[in-house]
């Protein structure tokens, strides 16, 4: 890695922690003034807030924790009706997404056990983002296992967008594309804020939360979706991997999103936002 202090390149500070089976990082730009102990403390505090929220949601929704509410539901010790308000709200959201994606996204495993893991990471990012906002942080980038939500700019006081790279599924040490998030360039829409969220789902290293329809082999190896909010990006990326070209076309016509989809043979389908 090259140093970030090179001319014209934003200087950033990041804190990371492990949660939900992955790594979460919070990145903020270093302002025109030198990085101080106070700034370090602010970042550490903010990371702590994010980590606590992720921890709470993980404790409730993880199927890998035997004592979690999700696990108790899976074992039949608890019914949905007896579940917490938060669990039921999340489940209702997921059911609504299932409706809107015509079943490509589903909150249940094939055996009928409620499985909200496809929604919870996005939900946690969204919640953490709201907490950061409420603490008055203007410029930040929150990345949880490759799902990204940003605010503001990587350069304090500028309108520059965060540049998010998309991993090449055929060679995971390289990037296949980049997409600008946040900032306020807006391009053709004139000064408006661009999408703030980018989520990528894949079938190569997929989690158990992507159930494909029918025979079960996905057309797409990897799907990235940029959207105004992280839940839409995350859910639609998952749904397109599961639902194929049909779901891809449904997503691009029904939502204000940009999509980069990589077929199993390496072919690429992309909306104009991903074009060079």
């Amino acid at each position: 890695m090259q140093p970030t202090s090179e001319l014209g390149r934003p200087e950033l500070k990041a804190k990371t922690f492990r949660r939900m089976g992955t790594v979460v990082s919070l990145t903020v730009p270093v302002g025109p003034e030198p990085w101080t102990a106070a700034a370090e403390a602010t970042l550490a505090d903010a990371t702590g807030v994010v980590e606590r929220r992720f921890g709470e949601l993980d404790a409730r929704f993880s199927l890998y924790r035997p004592e979690s509410e999700a696990s108790r539901l899976a074992r039949g010790e608890l019914s949905l009706r007896e579940a917490s308000q938060e669990f039921r709200d999340c489940y209702a959201d997921a059911a609504e997404w299932r409706l809107q994606t015509e079943g490509a996204f589903t909150p249940e495993r094939p055996d009928g056990v409620p499985d909200l893991s496809g929604l919870v990471k996005g939900f946690a990012i969204k919640e953490a983002g709201a907490l950061l906002q409420s603490r008055g942080l203007a410029d930040w980038c929150l990345n949880a296992g490759g799902d990204v939500l940003v605010a503001g700019s990587p350069i304090v006081g500028s309108r520059a967008a965060w540049q998010a790279g998309v991993v090449d599924p055929q060679d995971r040490t390289t990037l296949i594309a980049a997409y600008p998030l946040g900032g306020s360039t807006g391009g053709s829409t004139g000064g408006s804020t661009g999408p703030r969220a980018l989520a990528t789902s894949g079938s190569a290293e997929r989690g158990d939360h992507i159930w494909t329809r029918g025979a079960g082999v996905s057309e797409f190896r990897q799907v990235s979706v940029a959207a105004a909010d992280i839940l839409t990006a995350d859910v639609l990326a998952t749904a397109i991997v599961a639902g194929g070209v049909r779901m891809l076309n449904r997503a691009t016509s029904g939502w204000d999103v940009e999509v980069l989809a990589i077929r199993n043979d390496g072919g690429i389908l992309a909306t104009p936002g991903f074009r060079a």
Binding site: W162, V167, A178, S201, G202, I268
Partner: peptide
């Protein structure tokens, strides 16, 4: 596709579990 030099991006999106 919009080409990304890794040194010019500030974050990475990828399907990781």
């Amino acid at each position: 596709v919009l080409q990304a030099q890794s040194a010019n991006v500030q974050t990475i999106s990828g399907a990781t579990v």
